[in-house]
């Protein structure tokens, strides 16, 4: 086993933290909330940019009849 792995196994966590949370006890609820907001912002900005900024910036090269 290499030294770096040893270091990693023995020194995995920051000293002096109030608590240690393992994989199974951690649900990233805050991340889910933030990313949901991000999803909504992306959708809103996309619709605005495409249908207001772009489509109203006419004339646009089109098939005309």
């Amino acid at each position: 086993m290499g030294e770096s792995e040893l270091r990693r196994e023995t020194g995995g966590d920051e000293p002096g933290l109030p608590r240690e949370i393992g994989h199974d006890e951690f649900d990233p609820t805050g991340t889910l909330a933030l990313i949901t907001l991000y999803f909504l912002v992306l959708v809103a900005m996309w619709l605005f940019t495409y249908f207001i900024e772009f489509v109203d910036n006419d004339p646009t090269p089109m098939l005309l009849t």
Partner: peptide, 22 residues
């Protein structure tokens, strides 16, 4: 990446005693 990195930061914040949704 956005999810994984933010979740890793949240893990740090929770270990440091962070509470609540935001």
């Amino acid at each position: 990446t956005a999810f994984t990195v933010v979740a890793s930061m949240e893990h740090g914040a929770r270990q440091r005693g962070g509470e609540g949704t935001f």
